[in-house]
Design a protein around this nucleic acid. Structure first.
Lengths: 340, 340
DNA sequence: CAGCATCATGCAATCGATTTCATCATCTAT
DNA sequence: ATAGATGATGAAATCGATTGCATGATGCTG
């Protein structure tokens, strides 16, 4: 491996001078600069980032912990992260927490140990107290994505769940739907709570209220959407539209309806949330509320870079808007619907 | 930050002794071991991985370059990678090459600079010569996933494209299809070539040959599947089944057929390749050949760990099998088909 | 011409570990 | 009793950079 010492010898200067040229700071004569640059090129010198990091206390690595990296949902977020991080010369180290508190703790600790300059987290569980304490002591800036700000985070990226849920409901209401079912994800998730408020807002705008909405709580999985829809149908419930807590649930709804021979959107309308990768591939293509994952990642990285550049800045926040994506799963309600 | 020196002082021993306890090698008296462990716990000492890496020349980081990290396809591969790497104490650093030679070069160079212990690559383009040279000089073991082994890789993970394509064709042939169209991806991709051989093998088994197959070359995109299918229909070509180069192409095929009012699988059967995330969400749910991305990532990491443990071992290879996933887009051909 | 910036450079300390080697105490075998 | 093996420990060099400080050269001002 060719080191800075090799370069300095070749160019006939001290290591300090080489360092100045590489870092591009301090005074260096034109003659020496040329000589050093030539030596660097001839030897193919590349600075050892480990040594740099050790000495200067900046690793130029940012760490990220997500629920599950192996998921399309987060893949897109990583894309946004990279888009913002790379131009700033930061590499990315990613890890999954699998929605388990101890796994999430392990992942965060690993990133602390690796001397990341900053950490971005998207967690489903509150952070373990000892990890919070470690982060506080390490002084590493933390940006969290999602609903509840973690106690150590100095940056927060929030998705406008309120506005998204309101837009979805309004879309259904404007089409004339009045008997709507909402299949929500986990009731204790922050997202779910924020969305409820958005739905209420939309209902109010149409002179309705929460009582006019039938809510079934479950999980963010296709299976829930499927079985809940079947139950609804068996109860012979009277509804013309379903607002699914996410696109996975919506996929389950579509499946159940199709099995019962109920047409979408002619008989029943369905709207989802997320605009996940597969939303456009469903049949009919799913109308849904787009949650721009790449924008979330991008914003998180930007916030972190800002915190790195201005360590004394107060808590930062970014709010990301949702967007209604109209495809083909919503239409005006039919006057009458023949049940299965 | 609490360092090894702090611990040594607290325990009343030298740094060397602490290091031995932490590393778990060398001789240490029971009394000292206890004292040191106590000191570590009281101070909350965590070894500085940067310093360890610098001194011992092992960073315990594995680098990976994929075509595009922000894609569901690779998300799953990262999952497999992590599954194998974490238990070995290796962290992951990922980067995208965006199917561009210079971008891929940049990504690999970054990983070299970061002193990764090993690098895993999945590239679309041949590696730039200067990067090959850098890798060779750096002695960093490289494992490549995919068709063409890169000139520096000492490990190779190969997907059985041959067997997968043969299985897909056999499935169609067994159902009775004889007039089959293949919509292939980029003709110069290694995958595409290997699959062609698999298709020939299947045809031969049924007493047919390449002339009995109509091949249209294009790209691995939905748009190609869509437009190619429309063209085929406009030409009034006579076919009962389509074998799509991947599930994206298949999605385009389904879309075009649906628009023309052609039923799948009653009128025309469609089979894909990959078993991408959205394959099961299509309508009808797509029969396809599963390419186990997580297994590919897992195998790559294992190979790399093996190379790391046994630096003098010869070139390693792993072959990953595909699996036919039967859903609902293939059926026996109808006797007669009324064209649009 | 004296005094003071400004420009250029190198020495040496430092970051936080690992690792070689020397030293010394015990223990065992002859 | 003594040589040799084994166990236990610490001093010091080392990994490859960055950076504060001292020093010297040069240019400018009054």
């Amino acid at each position: 491996m060719v080191t800075i010492t090799d370069v300095s010898r070749r160019a006939g200067v001290s290591r300090s001078t080489v360092s100045r040229v590489v870092a591009g700071n301090g005074y260096v004569s034109e003659a020496n600069r040329k000589a050093i640059e030539a030596a660097i090129a001839e030897l193919g010198y590349r600075p050892n980032t480990l040594a740099q990091a050790l000495r200067s206390n900046r690793s130029n690595v940012i760490g990220a912990v997500f629920v599950d990296v192996g998921t399309p949902y987060f893949a897109n977020m990583i894309y946004g992260l990279q888009r913002a991080a790379r131009p700033a010369g930061k590499a990315l180290m990613v890890s999954s927490g699998y929605a388990d508190q101890d796994e999430e703790a392990r992942a965060v600790i690993e990133l602390i140990d690796r001397s990341c300059d900053g950490i971005i987290v998207y967690l489903e569980r509150p952070m373990r107290a000892d990890v919070v304490e470690m982060l506080r002591r390490s002084q590493i800036p933390v940006v969290s994505i999602g609903h509840k700000p973690s106690p150590v985070s100095r940056g927060q990226v929030i998705l406008d769940n309120f506005g998204g849920a309101r837009a979805a409901m309004r879309h259904l209401l404007e089409q004339g739907h009045r008997r709507i079912v909402h299949l929500s994800g986990q009731a204790d998730f922050g997202d779910t709570i924020a969305r409820r408020d958005g739905m209420v807002a939309a209902l109010n705008e149409f002179g309705m209220n929460m009582d006019d909405l039938h809510i079934v709580g479950g999980e963010f999985h296709q299976e829930f959407g499927y079985s809940a829809t079947l139950d609804l149908l068996n109860e012979r419930r009277d509804f013309t539209a379903v607002f699914a807590g996410d696109d996975d649930i919506a996929a389950g709804v579509l499946l159940a309806l199709r099995q019962r021979g109920i047409r979408v959107p002619e008989d029943i309308s369905v709207i989802g949330f997320d605009d996940a990768f597969h939303a456009r591939h469903m049949w009919p293509p799913l109308t849904t509320v787009r949650q721009p994952m790449d924008a979330l990642g991008d914003a998180a990285a930007r916030l972190l870079l800002e915190l790195l550049a201005r360590p004394d800045s107060g808590p930062l926040e970014a709010r990301i808007d949702t967007e209604l994506v109209v495809r083909s799963s919503v239409a005006a309600p039919a006057m009458q619907r023949e049940d299965a």
